[in-house]
Amino acid sequence: MAMLPWNAEDLTFDETRFKGRTRLFPLPDLVMFPHVMQPLHIFEPRYREMLNDALDSDGLIAMSVLAPGWEAVYEGRPKLLPPLCIGKIVTHQRLGDGRYNIMLLGMRRARLLHEVESGRSFRSAEVELLEEVYPTEGEADRAEMQSVLCRAFQKSLPIPDGAKPTGPVQELLASELPLGVLTDLAGFALPLDGELKCRLLAECNVDRRARMLLDALGRPWKGIPLTPAAVGYPPRFSSN
């Protein structure tokens, strides 16, 4: 079966219809961000049930991250880190044996409040949507910060041998992206430590997120790195 195409309505998030509860798809090594598209292969029975439930409803899945130590209890309910990215299924392909290939578009940052019993094989939770913050005190420097981050991001992108130095990603970066979108694209695409990616996902202050990335790329903003206390990590574990 071919991938089912998406339409414009699939690329929006209707906050007025979101009731604060969502399905959880926890993985140990993928930190999803808003504004990015991620292909996923769904094969475990519990996540196939999750996907069928999402396709029959709002199409939303919250990508979450398993806390360290998940290996011993993977088949059960290992602890989760609080930062989430709510994504929307924009296209899907059901294979003959019941597995799926999907494309998930990151929509919104969220924080896990507590898990809820759903009577299903997959996990669900009450979550809090997080709003991006553009601090007033950063307005004067924001355009310059964005320019510096954009250049640093482009230079740090891993380009395979023989690939052209320009392409869709570079063309996208050359366009007028909001700083928040730029930080999410960079946080997702760059080969950063998973702990740092979780911190970037949890950070709602766009200027601070940009500074965290510049620190990681060896370009601290105005030569002054952020202190560990300023980035607010580690987060609390979710309650299971």
Rank of each mutant, 00 (worst) to 15 (best):
V65N: 04
H92L: 01
L66K: 09
L104R: 01
I102Q: 01
P83W: 01
G106F: 02
M63V: 14
L81C: 01
K88E: 06
L105M: 14
E75G: 14
N101M: 11
P45N: 03
S57R: 13
N101H: 14
H41R: 14
K79S: 11
G96Y: 05
S64R: 05
P39Q: 06
F43Y: 14
K79T: 12
V73H: 12
G76T: 15
P45A: 04
R108H: 11
P82E: 14
I42S: 02
E49F: 10
A110R: 00
N101I: 05
G87M: 07
R48L: 08
I42K: 06
M63A: 07
D56I: 01
H92M: 02
G87R: 02
L40M: 15
R108G: 03
M63C: 08
H92S: 14
P39F: 06
Y100F: 15
L66Q: 10
L60S: 11
R109W: 00
L51T: 13
G96P: 06
P39H: 08
Y47V: 03
L95I: 07
N101S: 10
V73W: 02
Q93W: 05
D53M: 09
A62H: 04
G96M: 10
M50L: 15
P39C: 06
M63G: 00
R77W: 02
I61A: 03
A67R: 08
G69I: 09
S64M: 07
P82F: 00
D58A: 11
L84I: 10
L81D: 05
L84F: 06
D53V: 11
G87L: 04
T91C: 13
R48G: 01
D53C: 11
R109P: 00
H92R: 09
D58N: 15
R46K: 07
L104F: 02
A62P: 02
E75C: 06
L80S: 03
R46E: 02
A62N: 04
G87P: 04
F43S: 04
G106A: 07
M107I: 13
A67S: 14
